[in-house]
């Protein structure tokens, strides 16, 4: 049901853009107003979320330790999985953010009656990393629409991306991988019972949205062969704050752009903020050195605890008869 709601929502969005451009001639709305509004929502919204999280302090050093602690000199510390200094934490965070270290841990292979059982759990890691890597490559490639002349790294990425040398225009792997990985993540939600059970509409919606974006993007490049020159004029207009609508850009472009706008605008209100949140996660970005260095809790306050005097007052006679030293005879 959650999937259906989300699917219908994305279809409606698509039709909205199509209808808006085709019959109502609202190119200016979909090509200029909404993209600006979306990017503003994204920037303000995400900053707001990050500031709000950052305003909540980290009162305790609650590292999740996944390896040997720093201890006696002859015992080898796992400096990355159980970091005790900033260096270790940095490496841990890099592995976490770029390589999804924790997800990779999801290993499952055991000998049972001499038969090695392989876990399917690495698939989530693979799907996840393919999805995110492809997403950022595609995003990066789109910078070509916003820079003149094109930057060198863009050429490099594009060359690498098209290494398969198939077709004309050359097939870029990132788009294909993005679509494939998004489909995989979606299928997971349909097919794995646990995951289906926990999935909310908010989990399906961004997937459908991204699939929609990828499909329209791929269609523009390989099928409808959208006039890239006109598109670039539009995007350069947007980035230089002199927006102008060009005829000759098909409806499919507006659908693509609208879905992207929705994604950006939706971002700060959704689970997609995990992109920024992961950096703040206290179980990962703290060193496990709570016994070595004192961690300060900004809202620390004194509590009323039982004092020794109260304790001795209650038990003095019993302590004396048991020959336990007391303060007051």
């Amino acid at each position: 049901m959650g999937a259906l709601i989300s699917f219908i929502a994305v279809i409606i969005l698509t039709l909205l853009a199509y209808g808006g451009v085709k019959s109502a001639n609202m190119q200016a709305i979909f090509g200029i107003v909404l993209p600006y509004a979306a990017i503003m929502t994204f920037l303000i919204g995400v900053s707001y979320r990050v500031i709000k999280w950052a305003k909540s302090p980290v009162p305790y050093r609650i590292t999740t330790t996944c390896g040997q602690q720093k201890t006696l000199p002859w015992i080898k510390q796992n400096k990355i999985e159980n970091p005790s200094d900033a260096m270790g934490v940095t490496v841990r965070m890099i592995l976490e953010v770029l390589l999804f270290r924790s997800l990779f841990r999801n290993t499952r292979s055991e000998l049972q009656d001499g038969k090695l059982l392989h876990g399917s759990s690495k698939w989530l890691w693979l799907g996840g990393i393919a999805f995110h890597a492809a997403f950022f490559t595609v995003l990066f490639r789109h910078l070509r629409l916003f820079t003149e002349p094109m930057l060198l790294p863009l050429h490099l990425v594009e060359t690498l991306d098209g290494f398969m040398q198939i077709g004309a225009p050359r097939l870029l792997m990132s788009g294909v991988v993005l679509l494939g990985a998004a489909m995989f993540l979606l299928l997971r939600r349909f097919l794995i019972p646990q995951v289906r059970y926990i999935s909310l509409p908010a989990d399906y919606f961004p997937l459908f949205l991204i699939i929609g974006i990828a499909v329209t993007g791929i269609m523009m490049r390989y099928v409808t062969k959208t006039d890239i020159v006109s598109v670039k004029e539009l995007t350069m207009g947007l980035i230089s704050l002199k927006p102008k609508i060009h005829q000759g850009v098909g409806a499919i472009f507006y659908i693509h752009l609208f879905l992207v706008s929705v994604l950006f605008a939706y971002f700060p209100f959704s689970k997609l903020v995990h992109m920024t949140g992961v950096f703040l996660s206290p179980t990962r970005n703290l060193a496990n050195n709570g016994r070595e260095v004192r961690h300060i809790n900004p809202w620390n306050y004194k509590v009323k605890a039982r004092t020794y005097e109260e304790y001795e007052d209650e038990f003095r006679e019993k302590m004396k008869s048991a020959n336990i030293p007391v303060e007051k005879e």
Partner: peptide, 15 residues
Amino acid sequence: PETANQLRQVHDPFA
């Protein structure tokens, strides 16, 4: 039913 499907799907004896 929730439980049943979990039991059906996962084959790792430890999991």
